[in-house]
Design a binder for these strands. Structure first.
Lengths: 216, 216
DNA sequence: AGATTTTGTAGAACAAATTCTATATTAAGT
DNA sequence: ACTTAATATAGAATTTGTTCTACAAAATCT
């Protein structure tokens, strides 16, 4: 909260309507809110360097890049800024990754106005906001261990196979290349999917992209 | 325009913030605007059946179905309603499809506030709004037929199926969603792969990343 | 208008991939 | 050291996906 006793927000989203819509909700919640808006990463960084922000509402789907490590960059500039991810992606898999990477809240664009307000309030008071859904997931996987890069959980062989899948090879090609049986390939595929908590190739590819593995 | 001499709008979009944002812009343009909002197709239809709408601002990306042919259904209810598509999808691939299907304007969510206002005004006065970009395309297609975007070669149905594949849906899910037989899904997949000259899902996804700006 | 191509759809037969179970080997934990 | 968990590997049975062919309706070309 700044000197004039009102919260400062930064809405970073590439769509005007979204910036407007979120801005409106913010104004409804806090009459005196100071609301900054950014349409690109560059703008986002620029503003973060200039003014102290209490809450950054961030859509990670920018045209000028969107890998997960920008969260670290943001924190490097303003370590205390609270980040609420506001994404059009289904929370399930992605939320955890963003939370691990430095965000302290995750909200989907499908959320109702009430939930959005709840989330914003919660971020300001307790510094975080997580849906029950995600809390459950956290219990599941946080309790054990949390590798920074999810791909680390794969064994060497699994990684080998995963790369081939991401490159577009089918089971038959992989079986051929590695000289193993088709059921073995399927077994790996299964373990890979389980470990990374995905259930289809498209999601696997996204993870590889997110964690910028050259092979993608 | 209705009896009380003010325009009536219907904003159909599944995201609250977008509805708010567009609503705000509408109110800025026309103080006396009557603005209805719908978050689903069902709501959209319900409202269309009840009140006369001058301009429908429609995001066709609903959770409860989103094929192009709903435009026909809308027209069946209110033949005179003007439809402005407001979509996050790449203009070059989709605009023509929607225009052919009954819309009379296409605006991407990346548009600036000014452009949005221009579009809305244009829809109300001349009944249509097309960006220069698309006008060029129409001219081009009159002269020579060379697709700028490779995805243009897909038929509407093929596009629908391709998107589902890219999202990670399997044949079974797609067959279920579109209520078609499994061989039909395979046939589409084949035609899609042939037309785009790829032979695996990973490659298809890459093309979509390159040529299809979609937030999902 | 008539001919040709594209599109939306599917059946029969076949190929590919998955499940579930299992086992030997290695790595990790206490 | 001794036990437990993870890894690399498959077989049998089953499920999922593909091919190839086909056909009517719509769109496009001549």
């Amino acid at each position: 909260m700044n000197a004039s006793n009102s919260y400062s927000f930064l809405i970073a989203d590439d769509h005007v309507v979204v910036r407007q819509g979120v801005g409106m909700i913010l104004k409804e919640l806090f009459l005196s809110a100071v609301v900054y808006k950014a349409a690109t990463f560059n703008d986002t960084f620029k503003i973060l360097k200039e003014v102290k922000i209490d809450l950054l509402i961030l859509d990670v789907n920018f045209p000028d890049g969107n890998s997960i490590n920008i969260l670290a960059e943001i924190k490097a500039i303003q370590p205390d800024v609270k980040i609420l991810i506001f994404s059009a992606l289904e929370e399930s898999i992605y939320a955890m990754r963003y939370l691990n990477a430095g965000a302290s809240g995750y909200l989907t664009k499908e959320s109702s106005e009430d939930e959005m307000k709840l989330a914003i309030n919660s971020m300001l008071s307790s510094g975080k906001y997580i849906t029950q859904n995600i809390k459950d997931k956290i219990l599941d996987s946080y309790i054990s261990k949390k590798p920074t890069n999810p791909l680390e959980v794969l064994s060497n062989r699994e990684m080998e196979v995963a790369r081939l899948f991401v490159k577009g090879y089918g089971n038959l090609e992989i079986l051929e290349l590695l000289k193993i049986k088709k059921t073995t390939v399927s077994t790996y595929k299964n373990r890979i999917f389980e470990k990374l908590e995905v259930d289809n190739l498209a999601a696997l590819i996204k993870i590889f992209q997110l964690y910028h593995d050259e092979t993608a």
